[in-house]
Design a protein around this nucleic acid. Structure first.
Length: 211
DNA sequence: AGCTCTAACAGTGACTCTGC
DNA sequence: GCAGAGTCACTGTTAGAGCT
């Protein structure tokens, strides 16, 4: 999948550092014996980062998470899909205390806000909006982790990075076009209006953050 | 599979209207 | 006034969606 090279940064020349991310877990809910994503264990986190320095995509295994926090703390917006409901809770056992207070942006949450509380899968939005599909499933991601051989781990990384790329492309599409399309569970084609532009910061807010 | 949420559907009861 | 038919609103259940 080609990287987006067109700049879609906020107006006014203020180049933001944006981080897109996705988490893969080590086990299923039934195996963990808990409904809490925090009990699943995180195998891999893939991150796509862009800003004034350019752009890069990286993946972090559990042993590399220390570097991950630096990436997140440097971001003006941390973008993902259902991160509030899944990824952030899943990272809780690993993350520093302030992780949840960083500027997270959950695309699914925004869709729910304008769709009467109903969301849609990442795959449904990708298919309806971009005409692309996820390359694999989350269940396979766990299977790859359990196999543990080099080839399987490479597939896991490829899947996670592809999910991040899809998330980024959906975000960019919505930012530019202010709508997303998907087919809901009753097979109805839906289009929802969304606004992903950055809120205008007031001078007083900026100044207060200095103290 | 776990939990949560919501739409759709079916069933039930209340209400209104009509005819005798 | 009463009985029956039709309509509407409400409730409970079911199914399926999200995430891995």
């Amino acid at each position: 999948m080609a990287l987006i090279t067109t700049s879609i940064y906020p107006p006014g020349g203020d180049v933001k550092t944006e981080v897109f991310w996705d988490v893969e877990t080590k086990s299923f809910f039934d195996e963990a014996g808990s409904w809490d994503p925090a009990d699943l264990g995180v195998s891999l986190v893939s991150v796509y980062r862009r800003g004034g320095f350019g752009e890069e995509i990286r993946s972090f295994w559990e042993k590399d998470f220390d570097e991950l926090w630096k990436v997140f703390r440097d971001a003006d917006r941390i973008i993902g899909f259902n991160t509030l409901g899944f990824d952030i809770p899943a990272m809780k056992p690993y993350a520093p205390a302030d992780f949840a207070t960083l500027p997270h942006f959950d695309i699914l949450d925004k869709v729910k806000l304008v769709n009467f509380g109903r969301g849609a899968s990442l795959n449904a939005i990708a298919r309806g909006t971009l005409g692309v599909e996820k390359i694999d499933s989350g269940a396979n991601a766990i299977a790859y982790w359990k196999k543990g051989d080099a080839a399987s781990l490479a597939l896991l990384r490829k899947y996670c990075e592809a999910d991040v790329a899809i998330t980024r492309d959906i975000y960019d599409f919505a930012l530019k076009n202010k709508f997303l399309k998907f087919t809901d569970k009753w097979n109805n084609a839906r289009q929802v209006e969304v606004d992903f532009t950055y809120p205008v910061e007031t001078t007083s807010v900026k100044q207060s953050s200095l103290f």
